[in-house]
Amino acid sequence: MREVPLHLNETESQLQNLMDATLSTLPIGQAARVKAYDQCNATDQRLMVMGLIPGVEVRKIRVAPLGDPIAVEFDGRCVSLRRTEANSVRLESA
């Protein structure tokens, strides 16, 4: 009986982690699915137009030598964006 809530807690914390995950915090080399955008401002719209819409799998390829911007890949496209912009892209596990 005690194992179930423990298990649930773990799932919850994993879920919590995933809810916090953004394109900015995604580790290099990892892939995830776009869940939503925080603001839908002009930059977010630009990313969506380029094909980074909810449901699309995105992989972080690299970080620039000075720590910013980052480069991501989706649909065979490689796109560079700044961390502040990547913060707005919420992810869920692929």
């Binding site: 930059t43 630009r46 990313l47 380029m50 480069a71 496209r77 796109v79 560079s80 964006l81 912009e85």
Partner: peptide
Amino acid sequence: RPQPFVLEM
């Protein structure tokens, strides 16, 4: 305003 920098490689 801070300018976005979204650039396709």
